[in-house]
């Protein structure tokens, strides 16, 4: 659903994602998990697989505090292959100096889309079989909202957070932020979304949505505040692989609410059919999300199952992706 405000503004970054959203078409982003190693082919392979099925590809940034090939390096790998990345930046591992430096670095490669998130606590890394780095000193010099504001200041004022001028002007960025669209005391999630928008978030990618009714409710409250006209909200869809995965997310993943009916549905399916069902569920979710006013796109997360994305996008009627001017790899005035 296009929104007049956004459509009227001149292009901020010129990124493909921005152009798609500006055109009023339903945007699709998908997520790539980089490898816990330095082999670029993993990133490239996944990128190639998904390049036609999404307008931009998020690369996670040491997600769950597990050391992986860095998001900005992976973004470079993608952009050099003509694939538009959404670089993810957490606040956990870098202070404002490093963040701004990395943003300048990324911008020098033509990377424009930046998703600003707080980042999982380092204690997460030691989950399952992994040892992780739970004893690492975290940074959290700035929080995600401050990060959004910081990037906006770089882009719009050409100034670093401390006030110094950026040589030759600031980078052209399309600034994103995350949203956990669940009901919470004081409706704080909506209030926080408002703060992110106020800080300068151009696009929002939400945590995975399974409870459409609840999401409708919170979207209505977000619309009441006019937030949907000032930012582009892409609803998150996490592709379930099994009932167990759904149960796990419901119990243990913050911000994800899975209705019982959905769990039962997955549970009622035979094991070897679970993944198919998961794709089906994802498609249905996307279709329902498209109906909600204020949802500008969808962000598909198929964790360690990127291959599922093309089928889902096709089945959801979102293939082919719209033709817009390609992202320009180098800086342009």
């Amino acid at each position: 659903m296009p929104s007049l405000d956004i459509a009227a503004k001149p292009l901020i970054s010129g990124s493909r994602l921005e152009r798609v959203l500006r055109s009023g078409q339903f945007a699709v982003t998908a997520e790539i998990g980089p490898p816990p190693g330095c082999d670029p082919s993993v990133v490239v392979t996944k990128g190639d697989l998904l390049r036609s099925y999404a307008d931009a590809l998020n690369i996670t940034d040491n997600q769950t505090a597990v050391v992986r090939l860095s998001s900005n390096a992976a973004a470079v790998l993608l952009i050099q292959r003509g694939i538009e990345p959404v670089m993810q930046m957490t606040c956990r591992d870098r202070n404002r100096i490093a963040i701004q430096s990395d943003v300048l670095g990324a911008a020098s490669f033509g990377i424009r889309n930046c998703l600003c998130i707080a980042g999982d606590h380092q204690s997460f890394g030691a989950a399952g079989k992994l040892k992780g780095h739970p004893g690492a000193k975290n940074v959290y010099d700035v929080d995600s909202i401050q990060l959004v504001a910081m990037l906006k200041k770089m882009r719009d004022e050409g100034l670093l957070e401390g006030g110094d001028a950026i040589e030759h002007g600031g980078p052209r960025l399309f600034i994103g932020a995350a949203w956990t669209p669940v009901k919470e005391v004081g409706d704080i999630r909506v209030l926080r979304l408002a703060k992110k928008v106020a800080a300068g978030a151009d696009f929002i990618q939400t945590q995975g949505v399974y409870d459409i009714e609840e999401f409708k409710g919170i979207m209505s409250r977000a619309r009441d505040r006019g937030l949907h006209t000032r930012t582009c909200i892409l609803a998150g869809v996490i592709v379930p692989k099994s009932a167990g995965m759904l149960r796990y997310m419901q119990s243990s993943v913050a911000g994800v609410k899975v209705p019982d009916a959905l769990i039962q549905r997955m549970a009622g399916v035979k094991k070897d059919k679970a993944r198919e069902e998961g794709k089906k569920i994802s498609v249905e979710l996307i279709q329902q999300l498209r109906e909600i006013e204020g949802v500008s796109g969808v962000h598909i997360q198929a964790i360690e199952w990127e291959e599922a994305v093309p089928d889902i996008v096709k089945a959801a009627g979102l293939f082919p992706r719209p033709e817009v001017e390609a992202a320009v790899p180098s800086r342009e005035p």
Binding site: C91, A118, G119, H121, D143, Q207, V253
Partner: peptide
């Protein structure tokens, strides 16, 4: 995470993502 404009997405039912016994400081503030 010493967030100054919280809570982050990891807050679940008023508890911090790192430990179900740890209160989410930001929910307390809210």
């Amino acid at each position: 995470k010493s967030i100054l404009n919280g809570p982050c997405g990891g807050s679940k039912d008023g508890k911090c993502e790192i430990n179900p016994e740890t209160d989410c400081g930001w929910i307390k503030i809210v």
